[in-house]
Design a binder for these strands. Structure first.
Lengths: 310, 310
DNA sequence: CTGAAAGCGCTTACAG
DNA sequence: CTGAAAGCGCTTACAG
């Protein structure tokens, strides 16, 4: 009755149900997963929780898993101790039916890039040839955004995180976006990249300060491609502070499409996060049926959302 | 051999160990927890992960649990869907040996404030008479800080989050700090509370804007008690912007002692987070041995760290 | 000190 | 359609 079998007389069914109620019976999850060898759980490794990207990603994963009655167990690698613990095959994360690794490089986490337990594993926002993986077209998105700025005329800069080639950004997202920026310049025969790259820390305030010089010394219009919305927000702050007009004096296009971008009229390349999360969960289910298929890599296209800023 | 029994001949021991190695044996966690009825896991409910407070708290919990070979499983209540799922007795969080609830009010999460599964449960940074709980002396800390400001002379204000009586701040922390502020004023015979309360959103930038009027219109010195370091940071920004001297023209004392507070010379009431996390885990272990003892409530004292700001 | 038996609570396969 | 048996991989208690 409890497991959804249908060839049961209604009277028996009721007898079972009332016994369940009377005794307050709850199935023993440990016994069930012991017997079936399944936990109905997927472990999600991620660098952290609490910023926009991961909250949305988790939400998308949760939704897709819930359809199959699976739960997501979250393992943010908040500390070195956690990582060390998770290098052991009998650690908690491997008491699951599959693993999703978000923005993490398996090479830097595990010896030989091999997880201690053999479970279906999918990478999101990261790539490694040994694993199923889902990325987005960071390079193409940056190229499109930059090209649009160039087409409108004006000197063009990029605001870029200074640590883009270090952890925790090692999944290569920012490297790709910088490459896309350069490609767009190269297509127009522009090659003086260095003076166009403004590096700053990953914070709104740092971005604001970082563009002060560009905003005060340039002839307008000036174009700024921001490697992500978090930094673009600081750029917008600076534009307002200088009394300049966004989209006219200073054109800004960014990457991510965070929720506030619409209100601020920020043109930006939208990350299809929902689809990334959904696909991650679905590939895991698919992989269970096809354990021997070659690793699949899916690169999702991105879309430039044009608003007033650029 | 694997379970640490010592009455085993060395030769047998080696025989077992080499077999383990040869076969790549890993104990089946599901079978073990099924058999023993223990999971060696503690579930931690919290509103979110990724800000300073919860990262430190998790770290303290992790450390204490690891000593007993326990793992923490994190359940941030990021979405309504998660909460609904966790109202069911066979949900993932209850496949554990105990529950820690941080900054969460059981009354608002579960019908009758009762968890669906009967597990040892401890509240951290929240209070409910039915549970073991650990809080800190928010009121006393605020009183001490405010009194110190008053003793030094000058008009005294509080910067306070405007949503302090709503979720996610419903655990009452900010209400208590405001009460402590008022108590300190009352002790000095001051009763015009309302004009001294500057409300703002929970962000550095909001706090900065919120104290503009106070800083430009007041006779110096001005005293500001900030309900938390996150807001104090915006206050410090404003003081610098106005060209005022921190600790002389404007005295600021805050609450939390976030890592940056030392560098900024911010006087602040230190939250004993490490101890909160450690005690939470320890009470859980204690509770396993004393299932019938009355709920214990521990209120930890706080310490005002005096630096140059006030 | 070593080995074999019992049983935890389920699900699955089978007998009737 | 219903009921009883077998067995998943451990740990514990016991026999020798």
């Amino acid at each position: 009755v409890l497991n959804g079998y249908t060839d049961i007389t209604e009277s028996t069914r009721q007898r079972v149900l009332s016994a369940v109620k009377e005794l307050g019976f709850t199935p023993n999850r440990a016994a069930r997963s012991f017997r079936t060898g399944k936990t109905n759980t997927v472990s999600v490794f991620l660098p952290r929780i609490g910023d926009w990207f991961y909250d949305y990603l988790i939400s998308a994963i949760d939704t897709t898993l819930a359809d199959q009655d699976y739960d997501a167990a979250l393992f943010p690698l908040l500390s070195e101790r956690r990582l060390i613990r998770y290098r052991s095959a009998d650690a908690l994360p491997y008491q699951s039916d599959g693993v999703i690794m978000a923005s993490l490089n398996p090479e830097s986490l595990f010896p030989d890039a091999r997880l201690p337990a053999s479970l279906p594993t999918v990478l999101v926002d990261a790539y490694h040839g040994d694993f199923d993986s889902i990325t987005i077209d960071n390079r193409g998105g940056a190229r499109t955004a930059t090209s649009r700025l160039l087409d409108q005329g004006g000197d063009t800069y990029i605001v870029m995180v200074n640590d883009y080639d270090k952890e925790p950004f090692s999944s290569g997202v920012f490297i790709e976006r910088l490459a896309g920026f350069k490609e767009a310049l190269a297509l127009q025969g522009i090659s003086d990249f260095d003076r166009r790259i403004a590096l700053c820390e990953f914070s709104r305030i740092a971005a604001k300060q970082c563009v002060q010089d560009i905003l005060s010394s340039s002839a307008y219009p000036v174009n700024i491609f921001s490697c992500c919305d978090s930094l673009a927000r600081g750029v917008i702050d600076a534009v307002k502070d200088h009394g300049l007009r966004l989209g006219t004096d200073v054109r800004v296009i960014s990457f991510d499409d965070q929720p506030w971008a619409q209100n601020e009229e920020l043109s930006t390349v939208k990350q299809p996060i929902d689809e990334m999360g959904r696909l991650a969960a679905e590939i895991l289910f698919w992989r269970e049926e096809h354990p021997d298929a070659l690793p699949r890599h899916i690169e999702l296209p991105v879309e430039l959302i044009v608003r007033q800023s650029g």
